[in-house]
């Protein structure tokens, strides 16, 4: 018997680690992976709550999130490839053309 609190806490920790990854890493691919980690953290919380409340909808949401993440990764990686082609780099700090 594990309290749901523990799962939520784990989810939060994973989420924060993911956020840290987005914030401190410069490699676009790793940033992207961190985003996936954050999504995963959210999924974990969903499943945990679905289980504790005995409602299946949470799992359906996770299913949709996974589908959306797949789509996101496909497009995102395509973008990174496209950027790499022009910049010859995947350092996000070099992509600052919108600078004011």
């Amino acid at each position: 018997m594990v309290p749901v609190t523990y799962y939520v806490a784990l989810s939060a920790v994973l989420f924060i680690i993911g956020a840290m990854g987005v914030l401190v890493r410069r490699n676009a691919l790793i940033i992207f992976m961190s985003v996936e980690l954050m999504l995963n953290a959210a999924n974990l919380a969903f499943v945990a709550f679905a289980s504790v409340n005995n409602i299946l909808d949470g799992q359906i949401f996770v299913f949709f999130i996974i589908a959306v993440a797949a789509a996101e990764v496909a497009v995102g990686l395509a973008l990174i490839v496209a950027i790499f082609r022009t910049k010859k780099s995947i350092d996000v700090d070099q992509i600052n053309m919108l600078k004011g």
């Binding site: 594990v2 309290p3 749901v4 956020a19 945990a48 504790v52 005995n54």
Partner: peptide
Amino acid sequence: AIFLALVLMAEGVYLIFIQKSASGLINN
């Protein structure tokens, strides 16, 4: 970023363990 992450962590701890916003046991 590290500072903000720590603050966020603190808030999370407060929310989860002190306010106990989520409760219940995982049904085995």
